[in-house]
């Protein structure tokens, strides 16, 4: 009893730095951001202490509503592709032998050794007019003239898929890896075809991984303005781009804060939906 108490106490002591870190670097900035979003913009730079709801009213202007909708649409499309490509990838990876699992894992991790921005520049080289892709396609006589893929919606989607795919693969993999495959055998034994067993057992068992993959893809893709900026030129304006613009060129801190708060609320709603669906607070692949 006393032993247990003491043990608990020391665990709490060990947690103090973690709590302190979270409070200073996560909670305070968020509170500060929320506070900012209710203040007014100063003439030149900064804020004046005048409480107002104007920033939130501004978000309801058609231009910004459209930005939110566009962002959600792009995120949904990207996430859709990431699910279609990443689920089978993660699933089959879990079925590989130990040796091949490790190799695949290394292959997935390699891109993380270089900066994400650098890798996006790589895509520019591939997509630009007369770039690698055009040269290959034209060399194979599949196309006659450059496709002008860079600065298109498609290029942005490809960039998004590329940047977010590893999160889906890893989160599906981690739940498929934990799966008890004798359940599938039991289903087959009870008369299920391979397809039926996949739908009723495998998909259900890997659903937490799939859903957390969706969140890990959808949420960041709402804010990945640099992908849209680099690969989409200025054609595609996302929430992230607007926030960044308002912070820098627009010098409107309170409005940028208000947009961030709305984005955060949307994200929180998604995660609570996930918790509702899977009935658990833990996220696969996040632990």
């Amino acid at each position: 009893m006393t032993m247990k108490k003491r043990k608990n106490k020391s665990i709490y002591l060990m947690l103090v730095p973690i709590y302190a870190f979270t409070i200073i670097f996560v909670l305070f900035p968020i509170l500060y951001m929320i506070l900012l979003s209710f203040l007014s913009k100063a003439e030149v730079w900064g804020v004046v202490k005048e409480v107002t709801l104007d920033n939130y009213k501004k978000i309801t202007e058609p231009l910004y509503i459209k930005t939110f909708l566009d962002s959600i649409k792009l995120a949904a499309i990207s996430t859709g592709f990431v699910v279609l490509l990443g689920y089978p990838f993660g699933y089959f990876m879990a079925k590989l032998s130990k040796k091949w699992k490790r190799r695949m894992m290394e292959l997935i991790m390699v891109p993380f050794w270089t900066s994400g921005l650098m890798r996006l520049y790589g895509w520019i080289i591939v997509f630009r007019s007369n770039g690698t892709l055009d040269q290959i396609l034209m060399g194979l006589h599949i196309t006659k003239s450059p496709l002008k893929l860079l600065y298109s919606y498609e290029a942005v989607v490809v960039g998004m898929i590329y940047a977010l795919m590893p999160f889906m693969v890893l989160s599906v993999y981690s739940s498929a890896e934990k799966m008890d495959w004798t359940l599938v055998e039991a289903a087959r034994d009870l008369g299920a075809t391979k397809f039926k067993a996949f739908i009723t057992i495998t998909l259900k068992q890997t659903m937490p991984g799939l859903l957390s993959g969706v969140i890990l893809t959808f949420v960041p893709s709402m804010g990945m303005f640099f992908v849209a900026d680099l690969l989409g030129g200025n054609k595609i304006v996302l929430v992230g781009s607007v926030i960044q613009e308002q912070l820098t060129k627009g010098r409107n801190l309170p409005f940028a804060a208000a947009m961030s708060v709305v984005l955060m609320l949307l994200t929180t709603m998604l995660i609570s939906l996930y918790k509702r669906v899977t009935g658990s607070g833990e996220m696969e692949g996040l632990v």
Partner: peptide, 18 residues
């Protein structure tokens, strides 16, 4: 295939669908 055979198995670890 297993689903085409008129036999059923009680698995060593039961394999009940959780």
């Amino acid at each position: 295939e297993p689903n085409e055979r008129d036999v059923n198995t009680v698995f060593q670890n039961y394999a009940l669908f959780p």
